[in-house]
């Protein structure tokens, strides 16, 4: 198998600053983040949501509650996969009814993960509004889904891989683009 060529899209410092900037954008566009809650999509959406909440807290003193969403059971590709992935729990310790929610994920690609996440959220109640925040938008959407907050837009080919590393999970902050030579 030919080795893939990796290029760095964001360094550790750039990754940290990008997340910080996203937090400030959320504060600006949501009116001091009043009444919003952040929903991190497992896995890397979760530490991202926690960091965004930290920025919101520092900027406004407002506490944005965090929920964790596992979308495994809502995936549309289970029948294509030869095996079912392990299910993890969804932990949203507040009612989503009438709430202003921001879904948080690391990479926006086809939009199918977000479709699954929206389905999952609506099984829990009826939010007032759902927005999307992603660290990287790599294009190639297969559904009419867009993010309100984007850290970095990247031109990719469909077969490329965007690798997001976050300190909490991977021990370092870094975003890499892997492409076939």
């Amino acid at each position: 198998m030919p080795t893939r060529e990796k290029t760095q899209l964001l360094s550790a410092a750039q990754t940290g600053r990008t997340i910080e900037r996203l937090g400030h954008e959320i504060v600006e566009k949501t009116g001091e983040a009043h009444g919003i809650a952040l929903i991190g999509i497992r896995r890397r959406g979760v530490p991202l949501a926690q960091r965004l909440a930290g920025t919101v807290r520092a900027a406004t003193a407002a506490e944005a509650p965090i929920g964790i969403l596992d979308i495994t059971l809502y995936r549309d590709d289970l029948s294509l996969a030869s095996a079912h992935p392990v299910v993890q729990s969804t932990e949203i310790p507040f009612s989503v009814d009438g709430r202003d929610l921001i879904l948080v994920d690391d990479v926006l690609f086809t939009g199918r993960t977000i479709r699954a996440a929206i389905n999952g959220l609506f099984d829990l109640g009826r939010p007032r509004r759902v927005q999307l925040c992603v660290l990287v938008d790599r294009g190639h959407r297969e559904l009419p889904i867009e993010a309100a907050y984007v850290g970095r837009r990247v031109e990719t080919r469909p077969e490329d891989l965007v690798e997001v590393h976050l300190k909490e999970i991977d021990g370092e902050d870094r975003v890499l683009l892997e492409r076939m030579p």
Binding site: A81, S82, A83, H84, P85, T110, R112, T113, L161
Partner: peptide, 15 residues
């Protein structure tokens, strides 16, 4: 679990 078999490694790039 049984209708899907063993769990797969996470798909390389979910959307």
């Amino acid at each position: 679990l049984l209708t899907g078999g063993a769990p797969s490694a996470a798909t390389p790039q979910a959307g």
